[in-house]
C-alpha cells in the first residue's frame, strides 16, 4: 500500500493498544474463561497486521523474534520436565494455577512470535 490513508493509520493507532490488552486478557485468563495461549498469541500476532495497514515499515527484527521463539520453546520443555519431577516427588502439592498461567504465557509468547515472523516475512520480504 503505497498511499496509505491518514484516517486508517490514526484509527489503528488508537485501536491497537486495546487489541494488545485483549490479547493479554485472553492469555492470562486462559484457565478461567474460554481462550488460552494459542488464541491470545494469535490476537497479539494480528497487531502486526494492524501495524502493516497503518504504516508499512518493518519494526521487529527477524533475528530477535526468532531467538525469543526458540528460547520460549526451550523454557516450555524445561518447565514440563520440572513439573513432572515436582509432581512425582510431591515436593510441592497444589498450585496448579501458577503452572497453568505460566504455560499459557509461554505458549502465547511463542505463538505471537511465530505469527509475527510469518506475517513480517510474507509481507515485507516476499517480492517475487
Amino acid at each position: 500500500m503505497s498511499d496509505h490513508s491518514q484516517l486508517l493509520s490514526r484509527s489503528i493507532g488508537i485501536i491497537y493498544p486495546i487489541i494488545l490488552i485483549f490479547g493479554l486478557y485472553v492469555i492470562f485468563n486462559g484457565h478461567v474463561t474460554p481462550g488460552g495461549g494459542f488464541q491470545g498469541g494469535a490476537i497479539i500476532g494480528a497487531i502486526m497486521i494492524a501495524k502493516y495497514l497503518a504504516d508499512p515499515i518493518p519494526f521487529l527484527s527477524l533475528e530477535w523474534t526468532q531467538s525469543v521463539e526458540k528460547a520460549t520453546l526451550l523454557i516450555l520443555y524445561v518447565l514440563a520436565a520440572l513439573f513432572c519431577i515436582v509432581t512425582t516427588l510431591q515436593i510441592v502439592v497444589g498450585h496448579f494455577t501458577i503452572f497453568l498461567i505460566l504455560s499459557n504465557t509461554l505458549i502465547g509468547l511463542k505463538v505471537a512470535c511465530g505469527m509475527s515472523i510469518i506475517i513480517n516475512r510474507f509481507v515485507y520480504y516476499e517480492t517475487r
Binding site: 485472553v26 474460554p34 481462550g35 488460552g36 494459542f38 488464541q39 494469535a42 490476537i43 500476532g45 494480528a46 497486521i49 505469527m115 506475517i119
Partner: peptide, 15 residues
C-alpha cells in the same frame, strides 16, 4: 465450543 470459535475467528477471518 467458544475456544474453537475464537481461534477460527482470529485465524480464518483476520489473518
Amino acid at each position: 465450543a467458544p475456544d474453537v470459535a475464537l481461534a477460527e475467528a482470529i485465524i480464518g477471518s483476520t489473518l
